[in-house]
Structure formats: structure tokens, C-alpha cells
Design a protein around this nucleic acid. Structure first.
Lengths: 252, 252
DNA sequence: CGTCGGGTTGAACCTAGTCAAAGATAGTGG
DNA sequence: CCACTATCTTTGACTAGGTTCAACCCGACG
């Protein structure tokens, strides 16, 4: 049960995850909180006091538009950090719920701030953690804005593959902790499209899917699909970007 | 020429823009840099040393995927901050170019860090600035992931309207500093679709468009379009989100 | 054993993308 | 100052990818 992998506090010393940076200096003091499947860690609008680093299980984070549309903004597994969006306004902008039974480390934000003030290193790490989050969302925007459905799906699977590998788990066989609807929301697709895509990729031999269990079979093909080729609105292979950020197709 | 509005340093005392927070404590020391239309402020991969706050003109920020697809991640006008994405890795993750002749304040990042270490307030502001950026990208993800083309366009126009208003300019008549292609890239659409949408909204009386000059006429309609109704995958008006973040349609 | 949430699959529809051509605009150099 | 060019914009016709609606299946759980 890969997703359920539980981290001991000491694991974070070697862990490369986004939350790992900010945790070490706190782990002595920090408490934990258990969540059962479906339990909410925080909801949008709620006042922000603590950051959380996932110890085990899986969470999803989502924003809700005024009219009720839901967009899943990310999935968090062991080592990932949750709650950075609350720093800006003092209110959580997004909700977070447990997809599976989960456990999180609790980091009171005032302590993070104190720590960050006390050491230049701590400050740097905290900022870096936030900036990494920005980079992650930029990548996701790129996926949502420029990729076709199958490419998004391939990127999504490869992303999870890498993250599981980072936790010392199999990068080719894993269990997605979330239903099709959540994957769809995250990728800007409907659940039907997600289901169809997984079936198609299976038919084409790139992976094996059994409910939420995934077995990635053809990494080169998945990588090719996810990015190297056939990007929407980018037909020329030898195209470059000029100073204006325009695609400049080189002759020859 | 609304977009060309130039800020004096003192303006930032009252300015509510994202960059305004971080600037005041620095303005005495900080230098400026002028950019001509098309000039690049920084390119992806380049090492990160400085933040910039736009003084006048307009910039765009974009990421490029390995295969050459371009996604515009944001447009910056006076008061906006540029370069936060470099903090995470020490390398700029995105490129920034001037859409118009522009001037920016230059904030060496080491100084920001020193300032941030020196005062808890400074630290808080810097982090807040970064977190606000995160919130912005979450909103944009929501647009890219859940909205239809016309809704994205309406949101985009209303966003610019608010930002111009914040600068003390007209919220109803303004000039978009970027070509259709960039708007399209930002919204995850093609330039043809952008053009067609603007024509359609004009035909429907919501706005007047003349090249890059926009005159918003029917705010209620634009707001309605941008969010209140007809969101894709959200047909029920009285739907709410349950603990799992699922849409729960209330009976009645 | 029946119900319920989640998943799969099909068919019809529609939004937005693609390709193409013509018009507008602005910048450049004679 | 005007002609020329490059870039940007608009519009049309056609296509394709993804959504919608609907039926059905499967496994878990009471």
C-alpha cells in the first residue's frame, strides 16, 4: 500500500520533498494530527494559524469559485507541505481534505516565523519552500493552458511516479489515492475523459490500470506523450522562443 | 495612455499592488532600469539576483515547456512585482519581457533578505507578497481548469479593470498592452478565439473594442458571465461543496 | 441481497482549434 | 510625406477533441 507509507520524523533529514525543508528544525517540538478518510484539515475562509507537513496518507487541496466550481490544485503525499496559501491574507484560500486516512505534522506558523527570523538559513528555506510552490503552479498552468488531455494525463502520471520514487517506493507501480473525479478536476477534464484516457493508454500498452492501481509500462512513450512531441499549438520541432516570448520557427 | 502611467516612488506609500508592500523600505536605495518595448528583463535559466517592481509600462511573464510551448503566466503593470519564481532555485524559471517601453525598480534580493531579517514586519511583507502570488496562480488555475472561453475572457477583462482602477485610472476604458496571441496564451486559448470572443462580446453590447483599446460597457453582464452562472461542470445553482470537496447538489 | 459510490463505455453534440485568406496598423526607409 | 513591409487582427469554413447525457457494471458494505 504505497500511498500509506508513513514517515518517521527522522526520515525528513534525507527527504527531498517540499515540506522536508521546513520541518527539521521543528520536529522536536511539533505535534501531529490524525485524519480519517474524508476528514477536512482546513477549509477556505478559515483563519490561518498552522502549516502542515504530511507524514502519511494523501490529501487533496482545492479552491472553490464563487459560483461553486471546484478546482483541485494539488495532491499531497508524505513530505509535502500544506497551507502556504493562508500566509498572504491570514485566511485559508483553499480547502484541504484527506483522501485516505492520514497523519500530518503540525507547524504553528508563529513558530515558523520566529525560526525564520532567528536564522538566515531558516528564512531562506521557508521562502524557498514557498517559491517552489509557485514553480509547481506555473508548471500546472502550463499543463492546463497548453496541453491536450492525454498529455496532461501522462504528465500527471509521471509526476506521481517521480514523487513515489522520491519516497523510496516503486516508480512504476502505485495506487492513486483519489477518484477519477478529482483527477479530472486537477487536470481540467471530466471524470469520463479521465476514465477513457486511462483505458486508451492501457489499450496502447503504455500502462496497466485496475481501478486506482496503476502500473506504468512504457516510460519512453509516456514521456514522449507528456512533452517532447505533438504539443498543441506547437507543431514545429525546431522552434525557438525569441526575445518577445513568441515562437520563432527556424527555417530548416 | 493608461498603461503608460508612471509611478513616482512616493506613490507606493498608498499603492495597494503586490509589489507595493515590498518596496517602501527600499525605495531610498533602489535603482531603476528602463526597458524598451520587446526588451527582455530576465530569461528562464538565468541566475536570480534581483526582484523588480514595475514603475511604468507593462511586462509579461511566461514559462516555456521543454518542447517549446509557451504559457504566459501573467501581465505586470505599475506596482506589480516580478521575479519571485527565482527564489526557489536561484534560477529564474520564467522569462519576462516588456510589452511596452517600461521602467522598473531594481531590488537586489540580498537586500530584501537582509531587510526581511532585520524586521519581523519586513519578513512578513515579503512572505505575504509571495503568498499573494500563490493565490493569484490558484485563481488562474481555476480559470484555466473550469471556465469556458468566454468566461475566462470576461474574468480577464474584469481583472484588468480592477487593476487599472487601483492605479487611479479608468476601470472602464483602457488599453491592453499585449497582442491577441499573448492574451490567448494567458487564457489557454488561440489568438483567433480571443479575437472572435472580443467581437462577440462587442456584438452583444458588453464592450467596445478597437484594436487594443477596450471600453467596458455592461459590467453586470460581464460579471455574470465571468462567474455567477453557467460555469462548466457546475449546472446546479444551489450546489454546495461537502467535506470531500465534491459538489453536493442540494435538493430543491 | 440490495444499495450506493465509483468506474466504464457509447452516442450525440458542441466548443474551441486549425487552416486559410484578406484587412488593418504601425514602423521604416526612401 | 508616402510607399513598403512586417506584424497584428478579423473572419470564414471545416475539424477534432472533449463534454454531456445515459446506461450499465463492479465491488464494498450494511
Amino acid at each position: 500500500m504505497p500511498v500509506g507509507k508513513r514517515l518517521r520524523r527522522d526520515d525528513f533529514a534525507e527527504l527531498a520533498g517540499p515540506g522536508a525543508d521546513v520541518l527539521p528544525a521543528h520536529w522536536r517540538a511539533c505535534s501531529r494530527r490524525s485524519l480519517v478518510r474524508g476528514e477536512s484539515l482546513c477549509t477556505a475562509g478559515e483563519s490561518f494559524r498552522t502549516l502542515h507537513v504530511v507524514s502519511s496518507g494523501a490529501l487533496k487541496c482545492f479552491v472553490v469559485s464563487p459560483n461553486g466550481a471546484v478546482q483541485v490544485t494539488g495532491f499531497q503525499i508524505a513530505g509535502d507541505i500544506v497551507g502556504l496559501d493562508g500566509i498572504g491574507t491570514g485566511l485559508h484560500q483553499s480547502g484541504t481534505v484527506a483522501l485516505l486516512d492520514a497523519e500530518v505534522f503540525v507547524l504553528p506558523f508563529v513558530q515558523c516565523e520566529l525560526w525564520s527570523q532567528a536564522s538566515a538559513y531558516g528564512q531562506h528555506l521557508l521562502m524557498r519552500t514557498m517559491a517552489v510552490e509557485t514553480i509547481r503552479s506555473q508548471r500546472h498552468m502550463l499543463a492546463l493552458g497548453t496541453m491536450r488531455a492525454d498529455q496532461r494525463m501522462a504528465s500527471f502520471l509521471l509526476d506521481f511516479s517521480r514523487r513515489y520514487e522520491r519516497l523510496g517506493l516503486s516508480y512504476s507501480r502505485f495506487v492513486l489515492g483519489m477518484p477519477r473525479q478529482d483527477i479530472g478536476s486537477y487536470l481540467g477534464l471530466t471524470l469520463e475523459t479521465v476514465s477513457r484516457l486511462l483505458s486508451r493508454l492501457q489499450r496502447e500498452g503504455m500502462l496497466q490500470v485496475q481501478g486506482r492501481s496503476i502500473d506504468l509500462l512504457d516510460f519512453p512513450a509516456l514521456r514522449r506523450l507528456s512533452g517532447e512531441l505533438t504539443q498543441r499549438r506547437c507543431t514545429a520541432l525546431d522552434s525557438i522562443v525569441d526575445g518577445m516570448g513568441r515562437l520563432a520557427v527556424s527555417p530548416r
